[in-house]
Amino acid sequence: MSVQHMSIAPEYVSFYVAGRRNVDIPVHMNRQGIFVSEDCVNIPAYYWSDGDTHVTLGPYSEIAEARKPDSDTILNTPNQELILFDANEPQYAVAHVPSTKTRIRVWVDHPIEPSNVVIAWG
């Protein structure tokens, strides 16, 4: 259970966290920000042409974030895993979680185009 760091440039300016594959991605045509459903969290990212989005994924106990999370939700994780992916990339990272429902907390440094995203599970 280690913290994973990665730099990504998602073409669709967003990436997803889900507990299984083949999920419906929550989208909204009027609002901006993080969209959440029971199966998936849709997190905005930095515009791919302007730079990378730095993502940190790890257990909550090992993530040091002082402020209140920008999104706090319970996600279905039937396979006891958490997959980070986007429209083009089937898997950026996988984290193994202990239960079939996992609390996900997300911190972003900008509500629409974050360059740093921290995702904590558990």
Binding site: V13, N22, I25, P26, Q32, A87
Partner: peptide, 17 residues
């Protein structure tokens, strides 16, 4: 625009993985 881009990504992902 931002909204169409985000929704297109969601549609493309749907059912692919």
């Amino acid at each position: 625009c931002w909204w169409c881009k985000i929704s297109q990504g969601g549609l493309l992902s749907k059912g692919r993985y």
